[in-house]
Nucleic acid binder design. Sequence first.
RNA 1: GGGUGUUUAGCUCAGCUGGCUAGAGCGCUUCCUUCACACGGAAGAGGUCGGGGGUUCGAGUCCCUCAACACCCACCA
Length: 783
Amino acid sequence: MAYENNNKYAAELYAKQEAEGYFTADPKSTKEHFCMMLPPPNITGSLHVGHAASFMRQDVIARYQRMKGKDVLWLPGTDHAAMPVQMLVEKKLAAEGINFRTLGREGFLKHVWEWIELYGGEIRAQLRRMGFSLDWSREAFTMSPHCNSAVIHAFKKMYEDGLIYRATRMVNWDPAMQTSVSDLEVINSEEAGTFWHIAYPVEDSVEKIVVATTRPETMLGDTAVAVNPDDERYKHLIGKFVILPLVGRRIPIVADAYADMTKGTGAVKITPAHDFNDYEVGKRHNLDEIQVINKLGKICGGFVPALEGLDRFAARAEILKMLTAEGSLVKEAPCTHTVPRAERGNTILEPMITPQWFCDVSKLAAESVAKARSGELKFVPEVWVNTWYSWLENIQPWCISRQIWWGHRVPVYYDAAGKVAYVGDNPPAGLIQDEDSLDTWFSSGLWPLETLGWPDENAVDFKTYFPNQFLGTAHDIIFFWVARMVMMSIYFTGKLPFDTVMLNGMIVDEAGQKMSKTKGNVISPMNLVDEFGIDAVRFAICAACNQNRVNPFGVSNVENARKFLTKLLNGISFWEMKGVASSVGGRYTSCSPACCWILDRMDKMIADADKAMLLSELRFDEYAQNIYHFVWDDFCSTFIEAAKKDMSQTTVEVARFVIGNILKVLQPVAPFIAAELWQKLGFGNDVDLIREGFAEIADLNSIEEEVAEKFALDLEIAAAKAKAEGDKAAAAKELAEIAARIESLNKQLADKLFVSRAKPEVIEARKRSLAEMVERQAALLKV
RNA sequence: GGGUGUUUAGCUCAGCUGGCUAGAGCGCUUCCUUCACACGGAAGAGGUCGGGGGUUCGAGUCCCUCAACACCCACCA
């Protein structure tokens, strides 16, 4: 009998359980409440193996906590994912020959909603296929009318409190998407580039000052050359002026510590409008900020008519040609430098001074740090707390506005004069709304609040389930999401949104490589489910989820899990033949040594399962491996073999008792096969296993424990004897090993320092070990 | 430049507050269609726990140091 793909059965059971409210939380329940939020995946996305692994861990927790007698709310939902969805729909329209801007905001959004209508169902169907025990009756969406009103409420409050403000500052600008992006969305990539040395003639002098740059196109906006005040080479030039080549602008030579004497030529061109550092230098020296690259990434300002309107990179080439022609380009050298690229779309970003909305989170960040320092906010694994501190302690204002259409629109309204006239919901007529939309993470940051009915603080769900007990998510969004939720919760409620955060590692392929489409090593969890069956995939994922930053995973993991399920089915089928389905089942006090032993092992297995599921531990790999080894090694290899030699009705009933507990421990990981067996063996209806109490230990008395220990030792001795009888050479080898071991134990026990300093239990253990060795030696010598 | 993590069998990894002969899965070798299971069973090979130093009766485990790899943050002339 082999484990076969049980997806059809799984789908039916899941549908039944969903329909009958088995996953639905009950605020009225007298049970302890346990709430966690599903990190909302992109509404138009599909389930990748990273989702599967992260959500799988959460499902194991949800199912385990339910069995432990809690009222569990695991709340599902999806995220509107502003930037990716905007890009997708823009692209789709472009393929149809439509420039999305010609549609206008409302027209474009209509297409977005149609797109969501078309593709929004996939991820939800996949979450169901994975068997995740989510409370679908409470499903949320970050762009729902309710979430929109929560966002507006939040914005208004933060605006009125002065945390949100509009300012014209330098931000990272994506010329392709034509929007600002936040610092976190910038990917710094090391790339090969060129250092160009350009000579700027000093006014009224034959001297020239040579500056080095990787971005010559920005020279059109230069308003100074900076040198280090201590730089002997340039000291005499400070306060003088240079004439900017090509442009003819007269710009000062300023002294600023920013100029690094060891870098380039020691003199640096200053373009305050297109470089973050230069922007700061410009502020210090009151320099003009001259914009020479527009929002489309094209040259503007009209300083060199031949370049006007050229793309920034085409302009670079032109400028180099012109500089060469006039002899100003004195040197070029290859170099590697860091290029800021957009996380979405990979466009090279352009620093740009634009008006944007900012959120000042410095105070909230400090409180978030304090909550972690005090231990109120816990991380699993703990190491992440350091990352938490280092980011939050150096936090910068968060640019929350985006110049795209899909997303929550900034709820600020202006009068005809362009002054802010209203902020919030239901604006009076005749005002003009701000064109910007909000960073997706602004609404995601409210997720644990808005999904429970907030801002209505009297909503039943909010009162019952907030704060949540737990959050599990991938570690790469600790800043984007976790930090924002914590800060927003602290701000609006004074409470943490949850007290334990599990940051899981990333699933990589079996060679440890990040999965990517370009590498072609992506594996689809849904394909695996189709091929191997849902329970095998679930078990495999659970067993692969260790606490490392990366979790290698591949088809072989699933094959292995499938073998295990087959082993389990076969082990149970043995007992079915012995009539286990019609037996009573129970924990018998007077049973065979093998029974005592299996109950003892079972107790350890259950205790280990409970330990692995502590919220401070969360060792999913150990949870799965624990079941694996108990079933395979203890229950099948040892217990069944022993029972074959000494079968009785009592043994069958102990077996039934053990099987019942195996199914309970298995339920969180492989719920469908567990439920099917539960019903087949007559324990109850399959739908109900999820509601059973978790496995409980048999709790052997000391006499039973001794019997169990003796059984284990006898097994070992019997195996050694059997081997010795068959193979004299092996017997001799084993005897030699035992003798050596006995000698070393004797030596240690004779060591006065050891005996005086070692802990008594260690000495006891050594003595016991010695006695066992002597017993084994005696047994072998008799052969 | 700052930080974090990793380094244990051919591969992927367990080894918690130091304590019995360092483990698992896969792979490998030999044998076995034994009546639950070949998605199986039995036996076996394979490790100076990254290098060096230290603390200790005792170190894979603690401390120092060096090295390699990975990732994060900052820099971005």
